[in-house]
Design a binder for these strands. Sequence first.
DNA 1: CGGAACATTGACCCATGTCAAGTGTCGTGG
DNA 2: CCACGACACTTGACATGGGTCAATGTTCCG
Lengths: 229, 229
Amino acid sequence: MSIQSHHAPTARSTPPLAAGGSGFERRMDHGQLRRVEAREFLFVEGDPISHLYRIETGVVALYKVLADGRRQVMGFGYPGDLVGLGAEDEHAMNAQAIKPTRVRCLAVASLRQSAERDPMLAFKLYQALAHELAATRDLMMTTGQRSALERVSAFLIAFAKRNERNGQDPSQFDLPMTRADIGDFLGLTIETVSRTFTKLKLLGLIELPQYSHVRLIDRKRLGALAQGS
Amino acid sequence: MSIQSHHAPTARSTPPLAAGGSGFERRMDHGQLRRVEAREFLFVEGDPISHLYRIETGVVALYKVLADGRRQVMGFGYPGDLVGLGAEDEHAMNAQAIKPTRVRCLAVASLRQSAERDPMLAFKLYQALAHELAATRDLMMTTGQRSALERVSAFLIAFAKRNERNGQDPSQFDLPMTRADIGDFLGLTIETVSRTFTKLKLLGLIELPQYSHVRLIDRKRLGALAQGS
DNA sequence: CGGAACATTGACCCATGTCAAGTGTCGTGG
DNA sequence: CCACGACACTTGACATGGGTCAATGTTCCG
């Protein structure tokens, strides 16, 4: 999971809060739009950091790869998420679209300048980073300590929660990523992810009408599993 | 590994750089000193965030625990490291001293006020957070994708590098943490950590004159192992 | 319709976990 | 200075979750 700039996906009914006073959202709204086809890279490891991106539609996978090809997916960027934050001058990860994707770009040079004038903006960037750090730590807890069943359950529950926050159906959704993506995210193989989905199906916790479509039958029990009970 | 505020442990020979102009180090230098005994907590999960800490001497372990007691150590705070950064108002982790420790404290309220006046300071905090995020991602790569042998090698190499950066001996050192701490950091059991040390010994890559003292015999080969060769 | 990519399933294996002795090591009190 | 206890670490035997390899099924797209 990446950072979510609280940017209502539905119509904005209230005026910007005090905390929204930096005009960051507004600026992003006018950033240059860029299309990225599925499988294309938004940036790769080692690229100089030129822009900050906000996902408008689509999904990107953020990952690192080891010399021998082993891959760790650090998160997925969904609409509303900011990707590319960091203080180094080169990207430390790859950002690859897994669906046709549109992003808004903001040059970091100008962003940085503005941040020097505008403490509110600086704070928002800080917050976004802090949020991303917290998400990464949650993932670490999951991959480091939990069983396959717990990991996959946690993954599904997290997806449901995200949908809920965004006013979409939390009990039924399409997974935009492949089993390989999920596996590399959770530190499992494709086969184990697949077997675990099957197990959850047999336990009556989920249904899989198609490969990519998940229906959560017993969200409560699934959530309990995700915690480790 | 936590963030390292670049704070020369040896005598400072050069005047502060442009980047050091915020006076952050200077302020920290005058922060209130607090002693924390081994096994005492600097803060625990759920505590309101009141201060930012810089480790002066000693070591703290930063970790989260699951309901059933499984523990994930997210990093260790060594002298010079900043701990307690974040944008939430409650701590999401525990910080427990594993050696008698002294820290300097800075109230976040005042820090935040200053950051609003001083973009340089704000940027430093941002940088520190970004650094911590990068370290956490490295750890994720390690726990998610590497074998026990690779994890332990990577851990030792990282420790050596830190020592090197700080002008201490990179080929020989005392590990301040227990096997349990290392295990919970790397996502391994105590027994596996112990067996892996033994294996590295048999491979002629390290020596263990005492439980806590490690001598790296073949740092190059150890490094290669850490990468996964 | 055919082929490529993705997913599932099965059989087997191995790295790591678990459980259970044992062996340092250190600090305290006699 | 030694003896004791507590705790940390190591080692061994065994169990097992998840990895590997291989065959098969499904979906999608040209």
